[in-house]
Amino acid sequence: MNIIVCVKHVPDTEAAIKPLPDGSGVATDGLNYVLNPYDEFAVEEAIRIKESGGDSTVTVITVGPEDATKSLRTAIAMGADEGIHLKDPAFLETDAQGTAAILSEAVKTLPYDLILCGKQAVDDDCAQVGPALAERLGIPNVSVVTRMSIESGKVVAHSELEGATQVLECTLPAVLTAQKGLNEPRYPKLPMIMKAKRKEIKILDAAALGMSPEDVAPKAKRLSVSTPPPRRAGRVLEGDVAEVVKETVRLLKEEAKVL
């Protein structure tokens, strides 16, 4: 089975994120970048499918700047076989739909039975690439998957809805986006981290994919970035439990008017 996993190199969720002084974007200097947490679930699932038997290959692919190779190597250290880096200055400004277009041009040229992505990237939080990629490849997609199994050429997936879980069956190939809880991603073993260093990563630019600047120009354009307005500081109550509780309830009723 040929499994492709789309991954993104993103700032660590612990990072303090601030806008640039001119508000044109986010200050990225000094941020620590890692493999997108949701993509870790996707990579882990792909590797588990490979380990469960049969002859499978896991290829990880990313659209990203120079440093994104680190996330590809992290995935390879976990157990992925091949890495592809879609790298071009023209790709740096594109939007989520553009990323899906770029990925589809590369994926189109590869054999694939299953494509896995994380449900969203923790930087832009768009959650678009999975379904958009599926549309461009003309294959079905299942979003926000918490459980999946491959059974005779089909995938059965549990997709999270509000207050419910939908069980869907889909022919392969298909695109599935991974949700937290799909699995517990492994820590890469040290020898594998060292081995991943030596793995050759294929690099493709816009020309190699036959894409012009217009093809990858963002359709959704960022105008500005700002910090959210701070929440007004509230009131802290201490003291006798019964009195504090009584006062809180009174405030909720009369001041906040939420009861």
């Binding site: 680190k70 190597r73 992290t74 820590y187 890469p188 040290l190 981290i193 260093k197």
Partner: peptide, 16 residues
């Protein structure tokens, strides 16, 4: 740090 040293550091930092 080299790339693999960074990956190593993140792995053990997460584990820790």
């Amino acid at each position: 740090l080299s790339e693999e040293q960074e990956i190593l550091r993140e792995t053990i930092r997460d584990f820790a």
